[in-house]
């Protein structure tokens, strides 16, 4: 427990990055870890890039990490993984959603969305690619893709024994608890 683990979650405003981080933090606190979670509010609701950081261990000081420090980078959108790759430790892992979301500049044609973005991430780091949108849609709601990705993270960080059901119940509305529990399990099942 002594070693501090650093998790970085990134995505686009509205993807549920912050909710996934909250579920993660809640479960970690219940398991007795010291936890700090940092998020930047502000203009993310307007389609901007969103990043949250979760740090846990015996005693955590800084709420934020610097470059090359994340043990795992979970990207809810394909290109965002490339944007934050510099924060990942060279020994770290990436979980990336293959889902691509255009930006204001790519929509207008001012910039190109790099179509080979997943290949670029894979070439740079140990990467697990998930079609989280497809998995979540099969479960009945594409919006649950954030929890599918959380599931993969849980397995990779060997946190599967934490009380996820309780954490989900604490963080989401009752109507969505069942869906989110299924989505978490489906995400965990993607990692061998």
């Amino acid at each position: 427990m002594a070693e501090i683990k650093n998790i970085l979650l990134c995505g686009v405003g509205g993807q549920g990055t912050i909710l996934a981080s909250r579920i993660l933090s809640t479960a970690l606190v219940s398991a007795g870890y010291d936890v700090k979670m940092s998020e930047i509010h502000g203009m993310s609701q307007r389609g901007g890039s969103v990043v949250t950081q979760v740090r846990y261990g015996e005693k955590v000081f800084s709420p934020i990490i610097g470059k090359g420090s994340a043990d795992i980078l979970v990207s809810f959108e394909a290109m965002e993984a490339l944007r934050y790759l510099g924060d990942l430790s060279p020994k770290g892992h990436v979980v990336v959603n293959s889902h691509m979301m255009p930006t204001a500049t790519t929509l207008s044609g001012a910039e190109e969305y790099p179509k080979d973005v997943i290949e670029r991430v894979k070439a740079a780091a140990d990467t697990k690619v998930l079609d989280a949108a497809k998995i979540a849609t099969e479960l009945g709601n594409a919006r649950a893709m954030n929890i599918v990705l959380l599931g993969a993270l849980v397995k990779l960080m060997e946190l599967e024994n934490l009380d996820w059901e309780a954490a989900i119940k604490e963080c989401v509305k009752p109507a969505f608890v069942e869906l989110n529990i299924k989505a978490l399990a489906a995400g965990m099942a993607t990692v061998a």
Partner: peptide, 30 residues
């Protein structure tokens, strides 16, 4: 942040992954 303080006072920099970040499109709020 811890990196900036470490660099400023100890002159130490963390190893990072080298890759081409120039292809990443901007995602400004709109």
């Amino acid at each position: 942040n811890p990196d900036i303080v470490r660099m400023a006072l100890l002159g130490e920099e963390r190893e990072t992954i080298q890759y081409d970040s120039s292809v990443v499109a901007k995602r400004p709020p709109v």
